[in-house]
Design a protein around this nucleic acid. Structure first.
Lengths: 113, 113
DNA sequence: GGCAATATAGCGACCATCGACATATGCCAC
DNA sequence: GTGGCATATGTCGATGGTCGCTATATTGCC
């Protein structure tokens, strides 16, 4: 299997992370991401719905039924097995990169001259 | 100080990481990044030199002298204090994101099809 | 009556990255 | 002795994910 998303961007990563745990509808994802990041990342609607379409097309996310609440339609999405695998692979890649940077920074002196 | 680069992309992150430790010239950065990532990431020249210009303009990287080796000019770059701080902040962000995803994936069952 | 929150979606613009190209030197094989 | 590869720097056009703005509709609060 090819790594479909090398260099996944942060918003995409956080969307997949939000869907790992329980299916959510679009607006729920936005709130979840904001909560997870402590308000640091606020997904715009454009980013979110475009990403959900793209990820659905890539098979990392799939529709999980609709629901009508107070006259508003909710479209639910959930991670596919491929989506879970992609998220895990990306998480490991991030951790490796973070550890590498931290290790090198530890031995780094700001302007040695 | 403001976090200049929220949502830094992977190539940019790896360039800064390569420069944390010792000043390098462009081509040296390309080799270092390839080595660090085990060949997973091979920076194209376009990405590298554009990024160095951009990062220099943002004050995260600075020129560190030139050298002529075998008739070929080497332009060295090094991390600025601001660059080190930005890299560290980004590394911590990556680790938080990776940990969050891993935690949620642990409690996730790939839907029983 | 207006404004915020909920909920979905399209559209134009931005910009980091990529791939291809350009240029030049040193070295090794054929 | 020429063709190819590694070294070394850079430009340029295309791609594509994200952002900001806009549109639409309902509920609830002041």
């Amino acid at each position: 299997m090819v790594a479909i998303l090398p260099g996944m961007r942060e918003p995409t990563f956080l969307i997949l992370t939000a869907l790992a745990g329980a299916p959510l509808h679009g607006y729920g994802v936005i709130r979840q991401v904001a909560e997870h990041s402590g308000g640091r990342v606020t997904l715009s609607a454009g980013t979110l719905y475009a990403a959900l379409d793209r990820l659905t097309g890539e098979g990392l996310v799939e529709a999980s039924g609709e629901e009508e609440v107070d006259g508003r339609v909710r479209r639910y999405y959930r991670l596919t097995p491929a989506g879970g695998a992609a998220l895990q692979a990306e998480a490991e890649s991030l951790r490796r990169n973070a550890d590498l940077a931290t290790r090198r920074l530890a031995a780094w002196s700001p302007h040695p001259a």
